[in-house]
Simulated assay, not measured.
Amino acid sequence: MSPGDEHDSFGGVGGSGQTRTRLPEGNSGDVYGGARRPVRSSRSLLTVVGVVVVLVGAIALANRGGGDPADAAGPRAGTPGDSAPTAATGVRPVSGKNGRIPTGYAHDDQGAQSAATNYAVALGSAEMFQDGPREDIVRAIHDPAVVDDLLKGLDASYSAELMSGMGLNKDGTPPTGNTFVSRAVPIGAKVVDYTETSATVEVWCVGLGGLAGAGSTKPVTSTWFTISEKLKWVGGDWRVQSVSQREGPTPVNGDNRASMADEMAEAVEVYGGFTYAR
């Protein structure tokens, strides 16, 4: 696949040992952007662009080997069920930050899960649509050996034509009076393969993408997907080598009515993101 192939799909299965976060209940209100969405929309903005461009670029340009993976890691310390579902378990998950991205993960399977989950959030963020912030994110989370080629592909993918098709200005900013929404919200994570030098981690996410604002023709919608990240232990931390994605698992759509545009825009501004940890 080549960067910018917007027709790849998401999906997949979350696994055991997930990090779970309770999400707030939606509020009833007038329909935002027209009638309520059907149970399964064909594509949301985030599906088509927010994550696909980034991840397909990572597959095509950063797909390099990282040693033979061993079987999935064995049981972690402690007895399952000892802690609350939303509590972080095990060793301290992270020790520092590179800009706004947590770094310094533990050199074990729990650290790999924490790294992959936070990296999924970074890759699905609105900052990926602007040249400077995108380069900062890519350099912060990827193996240095793949960064330069990956950036070239991503810079070509995030073209002025792509931005225009999304309703954004050519520099990736939203038009006046609109708020651009692009978030990947992890639901859980599991280790698929693990060795001392490499790990493959799947992160189940719900994504939000679109423009919130008066007259927006691209209202904020949601999509469900599973990201698979191949990580390498480089320079004392877990770094991304390659990424793939598949659709789902997707729950049945609930009965909540979509919020009005101004309510959605305000929510994005006042509700900050999380640092996720196993």
Score class of each variant (00 low, 15 high):
Asp71Val: 08
Ala73Thr: 04
Ala73Gly: 08
Arg76Asn: 06
Arg76Cys: 04
Arg76Gln: 13
Ala77Arg: 12
Gly78Tyr: 12
Gly78Ser: 08
Gly78Ala: 09
Pro80Trp: 04
Gly81Glu: 10
Gly81Cys: 07
Asp82Phe: 06
Asp82Arg: 08
Ala84Lys: 14
Ala84Thr: 08
Thr86Glu: 15
Ala87Trp: 03
Ala88Gln: 14
Thr89His: 09
Thr89Val: 15
Thr89Phe: 13
Thr89Trp: 15
Thr89Lys: 13
Gly90Lys: 05
Gly90Val: 03
Gly90Thr: 07
Val91Arg: 15
Pro93Lys: 09
Val94Gln: 12
Ser95Leu: 11
Ser95Asn: 13
Asn98Leu: 14
Arg100Cys: 00
Arg100Asp: 14
Pro102Thr: 06
Thr103Ile: 11
Gly104Asn: 12
Tyr105Ser: 01
Asp109His: 15
Gly111Arg: 08
Gly111Gln: 06
Ala112Phe: 06
Ala116Arg: 02
Ala116Val: 05
Ala116Pro: 02
Ala116Thr: 08
Thr117Gly: 00
Asn118Arg: 08
Asn118Met: 07
Tyr119Gly: 00
Tyr119Pro: 00
Tyr119Cys: 00
Ala120Glu: 03
Ala120Arg: 01
Leu123Asp: 00
Leu123His: 01
Gly124Trp: 03
Gly124Asp: 02
Ala126Pro: 01
Glu127His: 08
Glu127Cys: 00
Phe129Ala: 13
Gln130Arg: 15
Gln130Ser: 09
Asp131Ala: 14
Gly132Arg: 10
Gly132Ile: 07
Pro133Gln: 07
Pro133Gly: 04
Arg134Phe: 02
Arg134Trp: 04
Glu135Tyr: 01
Asp136Met: 03
